[in-house]
């Protein structure tokens, strides 16, 4: 390798590109794995791309990404007012729950819809340089995390107003977020690839997420369903939400919820992995 000089740029060297038509599944899995490893090596690029996306979206607006904070705050206030009255609930306990649930759902819903364009939005880049596809997934995940951080004040302010203090238990939610992060990459690979091939999937995903919003305990509480809520464990979004939400509200998430989340995530990641390994070599042709 060229000595790293302070005054000249190093020559690109010592790289090897070996591309074969991979026919055996084992080769495909090895190549998919290499894609992820290469993408992790380029993490600075993925993070910068995600960060620039946010910067770009709010360039020229006075409040910048804090528009997100405001719109979420307004949504919490509006939905809280209407549903609090409808459900005859004390705002003191309902609003913190609602603020937290809505912000967390924004993360899930936002990620799922953006995962659909993981690869199609970078078509120019994909067609002009060889780059691990993981970089594009990282870009989407980073974008989602930045949006979430801008929504955090809504939770903090609501909790402060109503005097909710979750205590140290809330750190348990970090494990939940870890599961979410892995699922997020899987979603980017799976939905990104499927949507690149079939261009009518994003609207289908949109409708599914809309339905999911109403059948998941977000604006309502699971205990309001009482014994009629037996089907809730069948909704994977319910347990995934609980592993983060319960600790943040100061309760320990149940073993049942954790088991369900881990099992659902494992299956989801396996499906995503197989699809990605299968189509990785074709993605550039679909742009």
């Amino acid at each position: 390798m060229d000595a790293i000089s302070e005054h000249t740029l190093p020559r690109l060297s010592h790289a090897t590109l070996d591309v074969r038509s991979a026919l055996r599944p084992a080769q495909r899995h090895a190549l998919a794995w290499r894609d992820i490893a290469g993408g992790l090596g380029l993490w600075r690029l993925g993070v910068t791309l995600g960060w620039l996306d946010i910067k770009l979206k709010y360039r020229g607006s006075v409040l910048g990404p804090f528009w997100l904070t405001i719109s979420t705050g307004v949504m919490v206030a509006a939905i809280g007012g209407v549903y609090g009255t409808l459900f005859h609930m004390a705002l003191k306990s309902y609003l913190p729950f609602l603020a937290l649930s809505l912000v967390l759902w924004n993360v899930i819903g936002g990620l799922v819809s953006e995962a659909c364009t993981t690869f199609t939005q970078s078509d120019g880049m994909i067609r002009s340089v060889r780059m691990p596809f993981f970089v594009h997934a990282l870009r989407v995940v980073v974008r989602t995390i930045i949006s979430f951080l801008h929504n955090l004040p809504v939770i903090v302010v609501t909790f402060a107003i109503f005097g909710v203090s979750p205590g140290w238990v809330c750190l348990q939610s970090l494990f939940g977020f870890a599961v979410w992060t892995v699922d997020a990459f899987a979603a980017c690979f799976l939905l990104g690839a499927l949507c690149a091939r079939f261009r009518d999937i994003p609207p289908i995903v949109g409708s599914v997420m809309q339905i999911a919003f109403y059948i998941t305990p977000i604006v309502w509480r699971a205990d309001q369903l009482g014994s009629k809520g037996w089907w809730l464990p069948l909704n994977p979004f319910d347990s995934l939400l609980e592993i983060v939400r319960q600790p943040m509200l100061g309760e320990v998430a149940s073993m049942e919820v954790w088991t369900l989340s881990v099992v659902v995530s494992a299956v989801f990641c396996a499906v995503a992995w197989f699809v990605f390994a299968r189509v990785r070599a074709r993605l550039a042709y679909w742009m």
């Binding site: 020559r11 690109l12 060297s13 010592h14 790289a15 090897t16 590109l17 070996d18 591309v19 074969r20 038509s21 991979a22 994909i126 067609r127 002009s128 340089v129 060889r130 070599a281 074709r282 550039a284 042709y285």
Partner: peptide, 23 residues
């Protein structure tokens, strides 16, 4: 050129490039 750059992966055959590449 795109195939040598590794952007399109071939249906058949193999592309091997040793050396830092700029396309």
């Amino acid at each position: 050129l795109r195939t040598i750059a590794g952007i399109y992966e071939p249906v058949h055959g193999r592309v091997l490039v040793e050396g830092g590449l700029n396309a």
